[in-house]
């Protein structure tokens, strides 16, 4: 049995909400800022001098629960230097159809090279488009820095793990 007044109460709730501030926005004209710890599409970071932070260690791929990352490493030379140390990622691919944005790759990275960014606007018209390559993931070079590969003086960047701030 419908209790008297119940219908009216429901109608009142509907009526009242017509005057509330809407929670939705007119996407894509309007975009909400994402939270500081948002996990969007990955980026491969660079050092200030333009060298890539990624050393091709594939620990991200090992940590990935969805097997979305594929890394192949090659050897740096001082003539053609991509990253500090001996090793760099000559192939770095993330399949975003597999990625579950858990951020384990970010946790595993010893050089803070792979970082989940703000971009969540990912769409593809076919499956192979969902595979982002190294070139697509690398952040652009800062205007004051040089692109990779760089020619550097011998012995300048012979350690792969840079001095990092103490996490404490």
């Amino acid at each position: 049995m419908l209790r008297p007044g119940a219908l009216m109460r429901g109608m009142w709730t509907t009526f009242k909400s017509m005057f509330e501030k809407p929670v939705t926005v007119m996407y894509p004209q309007v975009k909400r800022p994402v939270s500081k710890r948002f996990k969007g599409r990955h980026e491969l970071k660079r050092y200030d001098n333009g060298l890539e932070k990624c050393i091709g260690c594939a620990l991200c791929a090992a940590a990935c629960p969805a097997d979305a990352i594929f890394v192949e490493a090659s050897e740096n030379t001082d003539e053609q230097r991509y990253s500090p140390g001996e090793r760099y990622a000559s192939t770095y691919e993330i399949n975003f159809l597999r990625c579950i944005y858990c951020g384990f790759c970010e946790d595993a990275c010893p050089t803070e090279a792979i970082v989940l960014g703000d971009n969540y606007e990912l769409s593809y018209t076919n499956r192979s488009e969902a595979i982002y390559t190294r070139e697509m993931l690398l952040v652009p070079v800062h205007p004051s820095a040089a692109p990779t590969p760089q020619k550097v003086a011998p012995g300048t960047f012979d350690r792969p793990i840079p001095e990092m701030e103490d996490p404490d």
Binding site: I55, C57, L59, G85, E86, R87, P110, T111, P160, I161
Partner: peptide, 11 residues
């Protein structure tokens, strides 16, 4: 020991 296990082939 350099502890460069991430880039070391033996890692």
């Amino acid at each position: 020991h350099p502890l460069d296990c991430p880039t070391c082939d033996k890692g």
